[in-house]
Design a protein around this nucleic acid. Sequence first.
DNA 1: AAGTTCACG
DNA 2: ACGTACGTGAACTTG
Length: 875
Amino acid sequence: MTTKKIVLLDGNSLAYRAFFALPLLTNDSGIHTNAVYGFTMMLQNILKEEQPTHLLVAWDAGKTTFRHSTFSEYKGGRQKTPPELSEQFPYLRKLLTAYNIPQYELENFEADDIIGTLSRTASAESAETVVISGDKDLTQLATESTTVCITRKGITDMEMYTPEHIEEKYGIEPLQIIDMKGLMGDASDNIPGVPGVGEKTALKLLKEYGSVEKVYESLDAISGKKLKENLTNNEEQAFMSKQLATIEVNAPLTIGLQDLSYSGPNEEQLTALFKELKFTTLLEKMGVEAEAPEPVEEIEVVTKHKVTNADLSDQMAVHLEMMDDNYLTSDLFGIAMTNGETVFYVPMSDVKEDEELKTWLANPEKQKLTTDAKALYAALAAIDIPVSGIDFDLTLAAYIVNPSLSFDDVSEAAESIGWNGIQKDASVYGKGAKKAVPAEDIIAQHAGTKAVAVWNLQETVSEKLKQNEQYELYHNLELPLAKILGKMESTGVKTDLDILQKIGTELSGRLEFLESTIYEIAGQSFNINSPKQLGVILFEKIGLTPIKKTKTGYSTAADVLEKLAPEHEIIEHILLYRQLGKLKSTYIDGLSKEIHEDGKVHTRFQQALTQTGRLSSINPNLQNIPIRLEEGRKIRAAFVPSEPDWIMFAADYSQIELRVLAHISQDEKLIEAFRAGADIHTKTAMDVFGVAKEDVTSNMRRAAKAVNFGIVYGISDYGLSQSLDIPRKEAAEFIETYLKSFPGVKQYMDDIIQDAKQRGFVSTMMNRRRYLPDITSSNFNLRGFAERTAMNTPIQGTAADIIKKAMIDMDHRLEKEDLQARMLLQVHDELIFEAPPEELEQLKKIVPEVMESALELNVPLKVDSAYGASWYDTK
DNA sequence: AAGTTCACG
DNA sequence: ACGTACGTGAACTTG
């Protein structure tokens, strides 16, 4: 016989919590689902953690309760429930029905009172009870057998209030929580309390006297003139407040514990509801395969082992099918093609032999429409099949329409434009250990549906792009860039394994020594890489004072450790261990594994990923190779030219983001500074600190630099205070002075936020868009984040536009001048090339020239260049 | 799979 | 009162 375990949930409170904790998710029928989703997550968590035998969700019944007859303004002044939440309540009810979880509400009473009454009944039977709410008032219900869990941050993090915990935290008993509320009131419920009495005073009084009644009995003994006066003048209010805060434990319920038994959900109803709400992750967790969308029409895909000229039209959708997402290393299955009439599939072994098909692929006059142009260029280049004339890229087009929709699968890109005809790769090939190559006809069918989707979507998407004035951006910037990036990826960067290994051996030695030093100081061995274990050593064993906390415990991040360094000798060793460990694992071991047989690394540039229009780099990431510290910078010596005696050549934009800001904001002083060729951080320091150029100290320049960074990121006093390690107030003053000095910037910041609110998105100079739905959120955090994004994205995004344009111009120029130099990498504001030494003088002239004239701004763009025998030497 | 940390612009 | 600087990717630990 199992013992009873009763769980009582405060429905309204948890729904609110879920709603505000999560962004406003909308499913495709336009219903908001964030509260239902969050609530479901909480519920699943509770069911798993608590394993209840009995369960109830209590709801607030209506607007007025018996408390309103005591105090008509009870819960007054509250903002009304947002409609986006209200519309979700019916779904919450449905959810609970599907779970077979009893729900209850009672006229004139609040959920609290239902929970209070049931918890007392349960206590009488000494059944173990857990109360869950977001409202701290309920902690008054804690007893030996009743634990009250209050949601903390997010949706699954709870603080458990037992009588012991309350004693520890407040130094009072659970029932005294009522007295505490009586004295201090509760702004959210509009309970007045006693003016001038907050938590501290309330607790002090209660520890001394025990209750509101006792406080008033002992009024004469209370010290503090003002306090005594406030108490005296508000006696009635204090007692009323206490009454309001008291949860009714004898509500006239029409149900009892016997009605609460829980024995699991109705799987069928639950799956149906999750499907309706499009909770695909939850469905997958339940083991229900996400429903493969029905193909719009059954298409016939013919497998051909040889194509004829009759099969090849002037314009065709071409899709290269493979199982892995890394097209540079994956086995290639074959190519599916369609001209809107027939669909055929050619296995790769046949493609390689098919001269007619290869000629067609290489012919720029034959238009190819595809799902991923760069993959087609690069993957086929790797097996010596040149491709030319790609005129449409579905993924790229969908990304330009809305970069926030992330697609790791063509089916998702197609779905974003309303095409549900493609099965997920994961459901065709399986995932994880179950992934396997299916029969050829299945591959052919799958590849065929993708080609068909591309063919059918081309017009719709192009139309959409034209409507948004984004067709230029897509067709004349991103699409040509895809070809260039493909070329860069297949070229690759020669990587000297010997150099990596030499650095690696040295690092291993130092790491071993550091490890033993750390263990010796700590007096024990432990995993230094585990923040959890390290936290125990530093903050419990050694007894250092924690500065910051994370969700899971003490923070041991570098900025925290740096502050602790003077306190204990172990810290500097840990910092060095971390620094060197990072180099070893990510940049020596990780990078070495990525070197292909040709002695090169072939990164892939993600072109349809970032929210701002930047590229990203994976397998390996060559956009974050160390440079700031000399030890790490040495890694760059391993990146060398792929031809004997060639050189590496690098060119980077100087202050491109601040120049873009100067242009966009039209701030006269900023523009003037750049036109005059001034050192922008020094100039900022002169203005912010009001001193002459000669009097700018290095510290002032450092602060000004941080302010400039902050401006670009979308400034906040908190952020700046963190970066400069100064009080927030001082940071706020810096910002104010800055914005007074550069009024055009201030104007821009204000305008762009207004603009984002009005249009729902911000855009770059080349009309790249980023939608910011949170900009109108009532949630302070979400809104703040969206506002900073609104300020930053046009700047970062325009800089991305500019370098992309420069890459296209550069590619043309190298060809026109018939140079052997090859573009290898892009690192956001710099381009890296390899070239024969005889082209050096020409590159020194051409590269900066092309980059500087990529886009005309009302300030000059400035490019610095350097060269050397390795990437390390381009300084 | 999520959280933490740290490398870059 | 809230609690963040903007944009990424990789390695590692832990649940």
